[in-house]
Amino acid sequence: MASTYSFDIVSDFDRQELVNAVDQTVREIKSRYDLKDTQTTVELGEEAININTDSEFTLDAVHTILTTKAAKRNLSLKIFDYGKSESAGGNRVRQEIKLRKGISSEIAKQISKLIRDEFKKLQASIQGDTVRVSAKSKDDLQLVIQRLKQEDYPVALQFTNYR
């Protein structure tokens, strides 16, 4: 039996589920009557999604479709960082949606401070873009997970490597 237990707090998403959500979005755009002739493109890159369409109205419709498909695939909507929409020549509109991955040092400091203030027996250490929490009791770790789920951070949090 281990003397200490730990888990990692990370901010990540399932890349394959995102690929599936974008593919479903493209299929729905091609089949919807109001979007069929807009020549809308949705391209998934390594760190961003690029949308190119003919108006702000269709851009909003594409956002709605994308967020709906992502939510149905259990992807947090906090992974999307919407950039400004800009004109792209020929009365077209382009927008880049960056994909958030990893916990920034600012948020990691907030999380570790919350753990230190509310749970005296636990240790939280920042390791790059993850936060490792360790304790002598698994029950204490469960309490930390429940407490962090109550907070509303600007990134999606997952709890991994529970040992």
Rank of each mutant, 00 (worst) to 15 (best):
T64W: 03
I29L: 07
T64Y: 06
K121I: 05
L59C: 13
S87D: 08
K72A: 08
S134R: 11
Q127W: 01
R27M: 03
L122D: 09
R132M: 09
D54C: 09
E46N: 13
N91R: 10
F80Y: 08
F80M: 07
G90R: 12
L44W: 12
G83V: 09
A70N: 03
V22R: 05
K36Q: 03
F119M: 02
E43Q: 12
I126K: 03
S85R: 08
D117W: 05
I49W: 02
V133I: 15
D54L: 02
F57E: 10
I107M: 07
S85I: 00
T41N: 12
D60S: 13
Q95V: 10
E28H: 10
S55L: 06
K78D: 10
S87V: 04
I65N: 00
G102P: 11
S85Y: 07
E47F: 08
G90T: 04
D37Q: 09
L114V: 07
A48V: 10
K30D: 15
A61P: 00
D81V: 12
I107Q: 06
Y33S: 12
K113Q: 15
A135C: 07
K69V: 01
Q127P: 03
S87G: 06
R132K: 15
L59F: 08
L77M: 13
A124Q: 11
K120A: 10
S105P: 00
G89H: 14
E56K: 02
E28M: 09
F119S: 02
S125V: 15
E47S: 15
A70E: 05
L122T: 14
E28D: 13
Q39D: 14
D117C: 02
D37T: 11
I65D: 01
E46P: 08
V62D: 06
S105G: 03
A48K: 15
L77T: 13
K36P: 03
E43D: 15
V93W: 04
A88H: 09
S112C: 15
S125F: 08
I111K: 08
I65G: 01
K98W: 02
S104M: 07
G90P: 00
T53L: 01
K30C: 07
S125L: 13
V62N: 01
L66R: 01
S87A: 04
L59I: 06
T40W: 01
I103Y: 04
S87N: 09
R92S: 13
S134C: 02
S87W: 02
K72V: 01
L75W: 04
A48D: 11
N91Q: 11
N20E: 13
H63A: 05
E46L: 07
L44P: 15
K136D: 02
Q110H: 06
S105I: 07
A21Y: 06
D117N: 13
S87E: 11
E86N: 08
R92M: 10
I79A: 00
R92D: 12
D139A: 11
G83R: 05
S85Q: 11
I115P: 00
A135D: 08
E96K: 15
I103T: 06
N74G: 01
